[in-house]
Design a protein around this nucleic acid. Structure first.
Length: 656
RNA sequence: GCUGACGUAGCUCAACUGGUAGAGCAGCGCACUUGUAAUGCGCAGGCUGGCGGUUCGAGUCCGCCCGUCAGCUCCA
């Protein structure tokens, strides 16, 4: 309701045009003045950067945008309101439910509720969903009530809702509001859409446990995930996209393309076994990186899979991370009564440190860069395991750089370049880079001198800026031993995984008392940088499979060329062609099966082989091949050498 | 580790309220000798994840364990 006011305000729209309205005009009235269609689609309004309810009056000049489903903030508002609608449905069906928080997410929303001793099974979701649809049809308006802190507390004390009371405790007087629609009222900052009627297509997706405030020591709540749309068609599209994303799941493709397998019963969970094709893929990736690392001055090393417990006592990994390690192989007891034995290595760094210590180092030698594709074992929590993205045995493209504090920035820059080169070569255009810094409120929990941290954090910032990397900072996310930079890529289901990582370490040099001699003949402590552009080869390949949907670049494809003789009589010619291609290091297979050409083509297409060469009588007579590409279909018949000249470069493994 | 769902042939899936496990693909054999995304016929393939219980009878119901999936928590 607009209050009548003498004064007018000026509304500036996104296209720069302006409207004049009486002060106190609501967002909805502004939308209506622009057009009936817009008013119908309007979900919220953004005024001077703040997203608000359409029902709230505008009291001063403002830059305004009417938010609809097409705006991210419009969607978020829609989903937030949907969470409230779901809560209303829950309240109707489960009168004893206690509500905690119910935010929008991207995409969708959830609500965390306390059901006491009751559990909610997945088949109850349909009933809740139906109730939501029924309530939505009533088209109740979302009404905002600003309340005092005392009133808010009174409300939830009467309800006995400790969670909301805890939330209110953290709020200031004057910023507390409730939203009410139909029979449901909730502590909420807002904003919300005008009414429930817009929520035409709600869908509840899953139910899961979640801890109050994300803390394991708190009670576990029931989290219900859902999504909703203003049109049924949009929901169908969403479900279709989800179905398609599942087609790109690396677990499915890994099986179909014969890349890797698990035997969780006999070999163990989280322990992938690489089949010949997957191993070819791994080795090719490994090869291109090794080639590049040689150019950049890395020295290869090779270390055992186990080490004495003493090594890990010195490094601090044992017994500190005991819960995450496979139990040690105990061989006896030392004179001091401590257990003696070996640990399956959870990290490569202690061994690399020992290699650094094999020699005295002058400042002239630094940086020393020791690289190893090292396989490590960690006993990850059972609930964490999944496909190749979280496993218990994996190979890191690890390297440790030992350098002076003054060299950190330059080293960081070159590792960023290398990582970007890797991501670029594999066509990862969308990734996030996160700089993890100290928690400024709790610097005591970190090891390493304060000025070193300050300098390293600045070095990372500058290295990032100078490499034109778009990174964001996360204070408090640093490891206790140093700040780091992580590269994150999403999988087919939109989950972000850390791939590449660059970490500064002040801890290990200290613990192992590493030294180098500086230009004044003084012993100094080097800084260590852990870095892995792929991160773990397993996870990287898992994400890569989903990224390319199993269609790898030709240089990486396990089988690069499939030769398809049209009949048994042409197998000899097929072998001649294969031999010629193999001299050029091309990975060739011949399909000698007793099948039709159509079948063999289908087989090769399904396996996503980049090139198929069909050979029969005509080709054998002329020394040619009939080329079919996975990407573009039949390409015509050409002499073998022409094929090599034309596509040979595609098979060249390189990061450039 | 926690919450929920799930586990049937190498793979993808069937089997009404408990009545004794079935199909397609893959495999093998035979025929066909093939020209750009599935040739035909036949054969074989199973301790229904494991252990225990209820029952005349369990793939189906109950309990425990193992594992998979989604999420939470954790992640040197």
């Amino acid at each position: 309701m607009a209050e009548t006011d003498e004064t007018t305000i000026e509304i500036t729209l996104p296209d720069g045009s302006t409207l004049t309205h009486p002060a106190g005009t609501t967002g909805m009235e502004v939308a209506e003045s622009i057009g009936a269609g817009l008013a119908r689609d309007a979900l919220a309004i953004k005024a001077n950067g703040e997203v608000r309810d359409l029902s709230r009056p505008l009291t001063e000049d403002a830059e305004v945008a009417i938010l609809t489903w097409d705006d991210e903030e419009g969607k978020q508002t829609f989903w937030h309101s949907s969470a409230h609608l779901m809560a209303e449905a829950l309240q109707a069906l489960y009168p004893d439910v206690t509500f905690t928080i119910g935010p929008p997410i991207d995409p969708g929303f959830y609500y965390d509720v306390d059901l006491g001793d009751q559990t909610l099974s997945a088949d109850e979701l349909d009933a809740i969903e139906d109730k939501m649809a029924e309530l939505a049809r009533r088209d109740a308006t979302y009404e905002r009530h600003e309340v005092s802190k005392a009133n808010a507390i009174e409300h939830y004390e009467a309800e006995g809702n400790e969670y909301k009371l805890e939330l209110i405790e953290g709020l200031e007087e004057g910023e507390i509001s409730f939203y009410e629609q139909g029979d449901f009222i909730d502590l909420c900052r807002g904003p919300h859409i005008p009414s429930t009627g817009a929520i035409k297509a709600p869908k509840l997706l899953s139910v899961a446990g979640a801890y109050w405030r994300g803390d394991e020591s708190n009670p576990q709540l029931t989290r219900i995930y859902g999504i909703s749309f203003p049109k049924e068609k949009l929901l169908e599209d969403f479900l279709e996209r989800r179905r398609k994303a599942k087609e790109r799941d690396h677990r499915k493709l890994g099986q179909e393309l014969n890349l890797f397998t698990f035997d969780t019963e006999q070999v163990g969970p989280g322990l992938p076994m690489w089949l010949p094709k997957g191993t070819t893929l791994r080795q090719t990736l490994r090869g291109v990186l090794q080639q590049e690392q040689v150019k950049q001055g890395y020295k290869p090393v090779c270390t055992p899979h186990i080490g004495r417990l003493d090594l890990y006592r010195t490094s601090g990994h044992y017994p500190h991370y005991e819960a995450d390690q496979f139990p040690p192989m105990v061989t006896g007891q030392g004179d001091d009564g401590e257990e003696e034995g070996y640990l399956l290595k959870p990290m490569n760094c202690p061994h690399h440190v020992k290699i650094y210590q094999n020699d005295h180092h002058s400042y002239r030698d630094l940086p020393v860069r020791l690289a190893e594709f090292g396989t490590v074992y960690r006993q990850e929590q059972t609930g964490e395991l999944g496909g190749l993205t979280r496993v218990r045995g994996f190979t890191q493209d690890d390297a440790h750089i030992f350098c002076t504090p003054g060299q950190v920035k330059a080293e960081f820059k070159s590792v960023i370049d290398l990582t970007l080169k890797v991501l670029d070569a594999l066509d990862f255009e969308e990734f996030e880079a996160q700089i993890s810094l100290r928690d400024p409120d709790d610097t005591a929990k970190y090891t390493g001198r304060d000025e070193l941290w300050t300098r390293a954090e600045q070095d990372i910032r500058e290295a990032v800026a100078e490499t034109d990397l778009d990174a964001y900072e996360e204070p408090g996310e640093a490891a206790f031993y140093g700040p780091k930079l992580d590269f994150m890529v999403e999988d087919a289901l939109g989950r972000a995984w850390q791939l590449g990582t660059i970490q500064v370490d002040y801890n290990l040099p200290e613990r192992f008392e590493l030294t180098y001699v500086d230009e004044h003949d003084a012993r100094k402590r080097p800084v260590m940088i852990h870095r892995a552009p792929f991160g773990s080869l397993e996870r990287f390949i898992g994400v890569l499979i989903e990224h390319c949907g199993g269609t790898f670049p030709a240089w990486l494809a396990p089988t690069q060329v499939q030769i398809i003789p049209v009949g048994d009589d042409f197998v000899d010619y097929a072998k001649t062609v294969a031999t010629q291609l193999r001299t050029d290091d091309i990975r060739v297979e011949i399909d000698t099966s007793d099948e039709t050409v159509g079948y063999k083509i289908r087989e090769a297409e399904t396996q996503k082989v980049p090139y198929m060469l069909v050979v029969g009588g005509d080709e054998a007579d002329d020394g040619t091949v009939s080329v079919r590409s996975h990407a573009d279909g039949p390409q015509g018949t050409v002499p073998i050498q022409d094929f090599l000249d034309r596509v040979g470069p595609e098979f060249e493994p390189t990061l450039d």
